Structure formats: C-alpha cells, structure tokens
Amino acid sequence: MALDEDMALLARQPLLSLMDRDALRLLAFAAESRILRAGDVLFRAGEPSDGAVLVVSGAVALTMQDDGKPASEIVGPGALIGELALFTSVPRQVTAIAREPTQVMRLPRSVMRRVLGESPDSAEAIAAAIGDRLRGFVGELSAVQEALSAIDRK
C-alpha cells in the first residue's frame, strides 16, 4: 500500500487525526503491514500489549474468552484495536482472530512514542483529547454512582 493511502487510513481515526501531517507520515512509514488468513490469531486476551492494530481489509473477531463461543464483536476495515496500547502497556482485553483473509497495520507503541517525541504539537493535541475523554468517563461514572446511591436509599 502506498504511504499516502496508509496516512489517509490513519487520519480516519479520531485520535490519530489530531496528529500533524509529518507525524502521520512517520507513523505510516513505520507501521507494519500483515496479511492474515482466516483463523490466524493476532493476539490473545491477557497477553501484554505493544501497540495497536488497524484493520485495513477483512474482518477480525474479538472475544473475551477462548471458549469456542461466538465472538463478542466483529470489526472490519477502519477499526483500531487496542488504541490504549499505543500509549501504555496494558494486558490485551480480548482475543483477536481473523475471520477471513485480512490485512492489518500494526502500530507499535515504541514508534508512537518516538513520533510524538518529534512532534510536540501532535503530542499536545492527543494529550488534550485523552484528557477530554477521561473527564467524560469520570462524569459518566459519577452519574452511575448517583443512580446506584439513589437505589440504595430506597
């Protein structure tokens, strides 16, 4: 895939779209493209993460357990799996298995850190967006806590 096409795919991601063009170019250049066959495992729940995976084509099943039950979710082109792993090491929350021939773009955390280190404006924009997300999440948790407290008072 051409570098401009890879950049366009990355720019469709809300968080990555905040990066300036040069930072996106570096990220796209360093991304690792992989072709998977149906049934290939990208990663398993509980494994340490080292970055995110962008689905370019095909479909990936995401499941919480490896028990043979149907997938919790099927994602297709444009899905970014493991976005948080771009910034911090967290255990994988799901097992990801290709459902059909699938192309993915692996985005290593080490590359993201290097790119953001060279692009302070991009790093600041992403940090602000993550801060907004966290504030929203805390607000949602507060609303849930209030609802639970109201139930307990009854």
Rank of each mutant, 00 (worst) to 15 (best):
V111T: 14
R99I: 00
A98I: 04
P101V: 00
V111E: 13
R106E: 11
R114Q: 13
V111Q: 05
R109K: 12
A98R: 15
R109M: 14
I97H: 00
T102C: 09
P108L: 11
P120M: 02
V111W: 04
R109Y: 06
A98G: 05
E124G: 02
E100K: 13
Q103F: 00
I97R: 15
P120L: 05
S122F: 09
P108S: 12
P120G: 06
M112Y: 05
E124Q: 15
A96L: 06
A123C: 11
R113Y: 00
R113S: 02
S110Q: 13
E124M: 15
P101D: 10
E118T: 00
I97L: 06
R113M: 00
V111H: 09
V115Y: 08
R113N: 01
Q103H: 13
V104K: 12
V115Q: 11
S119M: 09
D121P: 07
G117Q: 09
E100P: 03
E124H: 14
R113D: 03
Q103T: 11
I97S: 08
R106V: 15
A96W: 12
A125F: 02
G117T: 10
R109D: 12
R113I: 00
S119P: 00
I126A: 06
E100A: 07
L116V: 01
V104L: 12
L107F: 09
A125Y: 11
A125G: 02
S122A: 12
A96K: 09
V104T: 14
S119C: 07
A125N: 13
A125V: 02
S122R: 10
I126M: 12
L116M: 13
G117K: 08
S122W: 03
R109L: 12
P120K: 11
P120E: 02
P101Q: 06
R109E: 10
Q103M: 09
V104H: 10
A123N: 07
E118H: 08
R99T: 03
P120R: 09
L107A: 05
M112R: 01
A125Q: 11
E118G: 14
A123Y: 01
P120A: 02
L107C: 06
R114A: 10
V104P: 02
M105I: 07
